[in-house]
Write a protein that binds this DNA or RNA. Structure first.
Lengths: 402, 402
DNA sequence: ACTATTTCGTCATGGCCGTTTACAAATTAG
DNA sequence: CTAATTTGTAAACGGCCATGACGAAATAGT
């Protein structure tokens, strides 16, 4: 019953439901959930006027949602205005929870997020996973999932689904990891390894990071480009509040956009790809550093210390990013560009040259570039929230499992 | 009541309607129209099973559509199978018609297309429009519209709306031409100049061309990139069967994607933009030709004659296109790339180098590049069909006007 | 303090719409 | 010529939202 991640939100809540009365009911349940979730505690009357139904209809919908444990009645509102005060409704803090998991290159993490968006349980396990075979890694992850679920259940929550963020390309079935270079995994079906019988979604780390930015970022627009560097350089394209995945699920490969057509050869077969200028390896080499643990932190420290070689390397990387982004911005006309993942930490030294290139090459006002405020938690939160969004999108489907 | 063109189709038929019983009815009317329109004559029972409603419900919907003149009963189907034969339904050939218009640099054209997609009336007027002020041009266009509408009415059709394709950027209101360099028009509100009281949509020529490709092309995928060169070089991005317009409506500016970051300066402010290598002016200069009338035809003729200078110019342009498209393909992972407009006619000499670059720079199988079969009629047909699609998307809205 | 006013939530009624069930019509298979 | 199958329609049914009325709970005015 879990729709592919990328199709969960292109046209708003629950658009895949049939056009029969039951489908209408389910869509309206979803609209109530979305409205209450988005705009805090709300009275039935307010919800009614926002979504264009009558108070009576909303009353009936709310009753059903309360019976299912998805909505809670908080009690009478503070009056303020004339008239009988409404009864404040909020999304339940004791209903379903979204379980998010992340397979990082050197850590595993799992968390549970309730419908209000609060992280209610979390478990992390450090240790390098590069080169380990999938089975033991997933076994460890499964153990963390069980621990987090137990903790969440202690608070009255129950798991509505699991979403796993991995640093690699994921097939459109949202279960199979096609290629994860930094883990050295190929064509691995995580669905067979992960035990839960509740809905499972596997997705690309950068994509979940972009969704976190969309759902959690302050003032994030509904059309933007999210650029992150973990495995090479990836961009997630968000259009109309939904992720653009591409025909094969490979959209957003910004790392292989040509920056200088006759530049250094790239493993992809091309020449002068962005990764040859702004990829982790390229930047470390240009900065005169050896690859090793926590390379990004090292770069940031050296740059902060005023290391000219490192600063020059980051300056040049920003320039290349600016050139590649100029192409992307011309093509997509997004409302903004967000730097996330490792790029966020290096932004102070990347941004000047990046923005200069972008401004220089754009006719009108340049596309604003901002830095993600979610730190390294983006993908994990995005994964957990994707499950929560699925509940909001079709509350009727999940209510049956309560 | 006319939705902006680009939002007419992102999520299928009539998705903006309210979730009330009447909205449900309207959406189901739309689904019946779309089904019958797409898959030829169909019986009520077949339609019912395709869209997942019961025969009784479809009967009622079809009755309403027949009464409105949007559907026609063709008579009993040829039996073939056991059981009572169904009664074939087809979209009406005597109902509403979409009026499409095109303001070209050296011609004006108007046509009427019926719900079946047939061109039923057409009028063209040759003559250069470059530099003329909008008023007299629009007056001439209006006269052509009246003539075509009269002809269509003679065949029992009535106009359901007008869509105008212009070679320039159009504001999101779908009425105002922000900038049309080849016409030398700026900030012109065509809505004020065009008389019809039926719905009006003004759109970019390249976008309408891409929609024509989407709706009329043989085997055109639902996710593709349509590249055309009339004013500079424009690309239309089609995602999930809908046009991607961008925040300001400027998406698809492929012409200003950087190809060689330190190449020749471009009026846009950048350097080495695609237009500096594959733009009309650049190609003519490289080929050693003077700008003048029918420049594209001249290029094609010379190339066909084996003029080495021209062939080299086109080879180089194809190379630059290939580089720019590599970036776009990496970013969007489309199912294919379609060359339209003037590029279609020059394809034989552009394609080899274009495809070579694309293949060289892509890891997996290269994105297939095809050539539009619609010739120069794409934008005009796309405009007319956009009106037809609007009717299919909300038949109830248009039935009232019959 | 008391009344009028406003707003909220609910209930009963009604209308719209797709489903279910039943049936006549039209064809093929034997 | 009968049995089987499929189509289209009609009537009864049930679900769902709209409408209108009502009691409840607050404010505003006297």
């Amino acid at each position: 019953m879990t729709a592919p991640l990328h199709e969960a939100h292109p046209a708003g809540p629950g658009r895949a439901l049939p056009d029969t009365q039951q489908g209408m009911r389910r869509r309206n349940l979803a609209r109530v959930m979305h409205t209450v979730s988005a705009d805090g505690p709300l009275s039935r009357a307010t919800v009614a006027s926002r979504i264009g139904l009558t108070r009576a209809a909303v009353s009936s919908l709310v009753d059903e949602l309360i019976r299912s444990g998805l909505l809670e009645e908080l009690g009478p509102e503070r009056p303020g205005r004339v008239g009988r005060p409404g009864s404040a409704l909020a999304v339940s803090a004791h209903g379903p929870a979204g379980i998010g998991a992340e397979v990082g290159v050197d850590h595993l993490a799992v968390c549970a997020v309730d419908l209000r968006g609060q992280v209610r349980a979390k478990a992390v396990r450090h240790g390098a996973n590069r080169g380990r075979s999938p089975e033991p890694v997933i076994a460890e992850l499964t153990e963390l999932v069980h621990r987090v679920v137990a903790e969440a259940q202690g608070e009255g929550l129950w798991p509505a689904g699991l979403a796993v963020a991995v640093p690699g390309l994921v097939a459109r079935d949202a279960r199979t990891v096609v290629r994860a270079p930094n883990l050295e995994w190929h064509d691995t079906d995580l669905g067979a390894l992960l035990p839960p019988d509740w809905p499972l979604t596997v997705g690309n780390e950068a994509n979940f990071g972009a969704l976190a930015e969309l759902w959690l970022g302050e003032g994030t627009p509904r059309d933007f480009l999210h650029v992150s560097a973990e495995i090479g350089i990836g961009a997630a394209v968000v259009v109309a509040g939904g992720l653009l995945r591409g025909t094969r699920g490979f959209a957003g490969e910004l790392g292989h956009v040509p920056v200088r057509p006759e530049g250094p050869p790239c493993p992809c077969g091309g020449r002068g790809c962005l990764e040859q200028y702004a990829g982790e390896e390229a930047v470390l080499r240009a900065a005169g550093l050896e690859p090793g643990e926590d390379r990004v932190g090292l770069l940031a420290n050296r740059a902060a210390d005023g290391d000219t070689e490192v600063r020059r390397a980051l300056h040049d990387a920003g320039e290349a990013l600016g050139i590649a982004l100029t192409g992307a911005v011309n093509l997509l006309d997004p409302e903004g560009v967000v730097l996330g993942g490792a790029l966020a930490g290096l932004a102070p030294w990347l941004l000047p040259s990046l923005e200069a290139e972008l401004a220089r090459r754009t006719a009108g006002p340049a596309c604003p570039v901002t830095v993600s405020g979610l730190g390294s938690e983006g993908p994990l939160l995005g994964a957990a929230h994707s499950v929560v969004r699925a509940v909001l999108d079709d509350p009727a489907a999940v209510a049956e499992r309560g």
